[in-house]
Design a protein around this nucleic acid. Structure first.
Length: 436
DNA sequence: TTCTGTTTACTTGTCC
DNA sequence: GGACAAGTAAACAGAA
């Protein structure tokens, strides 16, 4: 569905408009396509500015408003009374004005399913048109415009991000800031190859990294849980994921020392002869995070579900290193590729200035990496309905958090952050994607 | 049986 | 070269 919407909005003839610009980096709307982790916020900010004030920076052409609407922004707005708040909360600055301002521009022609789907997709939907700028899922072909340039489709090239970053981006770009595993996996066309391998890696990353929290789904317990970001796993100043130049996020209080655990699984100690371990990270890795418990390079993380009393020892999460761990080289990459609107050192309004445009349509921008073919069959509308009627969902009440505990990382409910329900009001108030 | 989540083992690349 | 992060493989458990 969305794919169709997207393609409708970008017939081949439309492509020239994107590639007409020398580097495709000149319009303000391009900036919105940036990989900014506050992309939605940025987008909404821009929308508000464009439509509310009629800023000269944002002509209709530069905004490509019809494409945005066609890609599903409209339905996502139409069905998002709670979501508006969520969107406002995503970055803190835009939200409602943008929504209100966009109202008159909404397309009435979308089918109900489209509305549902796009609503469920929420934050991803606005980027769909960007995805369409590269040959879909990587036909691995070259750009129509110039085969010699970087515009070659990189959708099947391995993204220069770590799994943590990719997952983080996917979650952050989602309307409720949480996604099921399968959705995360669907977002990146590259990983449609070698599925077994990288799915395992994704699972490993989700389980292993403290910055990801598992949220049980009430509608289908036992099915794939939602994964969200630890609210503290952000740059405390910018609210961006990943936090620039921060150490790896970990809940230090959760790090038990020396407590034996029952073996649940794990690879046997000996690898069969002749097999070769896979290659390691392609990305630069961090400069020394402090000493940590490691096992084969991995920090040993306690299995809290088996240590219920561990909760008692958790008074607070993340004291001084309560930020996502993303590292020097990767951070440099992200700084280039992301258009972090509120990046430290950049005035908050800087993203409104046209010179900040380097993120547009970069081959490895999240918009090109992420699939917009969100596979409507994945949209479990029943689940959507159920969830929307679930007492915990759709409710702006702080009690919405009670829908289910965050079971991972010793439960976020043990955190003082649990009191900060504003984070969850958005999280729990939006449609849900099915996990399978 | 399949999916999901957790854990361990191991390799590789990067940084200090 | 050591420490560390990331990526991968694989075993295992639980639920549907």
């Amino acid at each position: 569905m969305l794919g169709a919407v997207k393609m409708e909005g970008h017939e081949p003839s439309d492509w020239s408009s994107y590639y007409a610009e020398p580097e495709g980096y000149s319009s303000v709307s391009n900036m919105n396509a940036g990989l900014g982790m506050n992309g939605m916020n940025t987008y909404m900010s821009m929308s508000a500015a464009a439509m509310g004030s009629g800023s000269g920076n944002m002509s209709t052409g530069s905004m490509n408003m019809s494409s945005y609407v066609g890609a599903g922004m409209s339905p996502s707005l139409a069905g998002m009374s709670p979501g508006a708040g969520a969107m406002a909360g995503m970055g803190g600055s835009a939200g409602a004005p943008g929504v209100a301002g966009m109202g008159p521009h909404l397309s009435p022609s979308l089918s109900p399913l489209g509305g549902q789907a796009a609503g469920a997709m929420g934050g991803l939907a606005p980027y769909a048109n960007m995805n369409s700028m590269s040959p879909m899922y990587g036909q691995a072909g070259l750009s129509r415009a110039d085969p010699k340039t970087y515009r070659r489709s990189y959708t099947h090239a391995k993204p220069p991000y770590s799994y943590i970053s990719l997952i983080t981006m996917a979650i952050q770009q989602s309307p409720n800031k949480m996604l099921t595993l399968s959705w995360i996996m669907d977002l990146f066309p590259f990983y449609r190859q070698n599925q077994q391998r990288w799915q395992n890696s994704i699972r490993h990353s989700l389980s292993f990294n403290d910055c990801f929290l598992k949220v049980p789904r009430p509608d289908k317990p036992g099915k794939g849980s939602f994964w969200t970001l630890h609210p503290r796993a952000t740059c405390p100043r910018t609210g961006c994921y990943p936090a620039p130049a921060q150490k790896r996020f970990k809940c230090e209080q959760l790090a038990f020392k020396g407590r034996p655990r029952a073996r649940r699984g794990g690879k046997p100690r000996r690898r069969p002869a002749g097999t070769q371990a896979s290659s390691g990270s392609a990305l630069g890795k961090a400069a020394g995070a402090g000493p940590s418990e490691t096992s084969g390079g991995h920090r040993v993380r306690p299995h809290f579900e088996r240590l219920p009393h561990a909760k008692d020892q958790i008074q607070s999460l993340g004291s001084k290193e309560d930020v996502a761990g993303h590292y020097k080289r990767e951070t440099r990459l992200l700084k280039i590729l992301l258009d972090l609107p509120h990046h430290p050192g950049r005035p908050p309004e800087a993203h409104l200035k046209p010179e900040h445009h380097y993120a547009f349509n970069h081959p490895f921008s999240i918009n090109n990496l992420m699939s917009s073919e969100q596979q409507p069959h994945k949209m479990d509308l029943k689940a959507y309905e159920q969830v929307m009627h679930y007492p915990g969902y759709g409710s702006p009440m702080p009690g919405s958090l009670a829908m289910g505990p965050v079971t991972n990382k010793a439960g976020l409910d043990a955190s003082p952050l649990a009191a900060d329900t504003s984070y969850y009001q958005g999280v729990y108030s939006r449609p849900i994607m099915n996990s399978s």
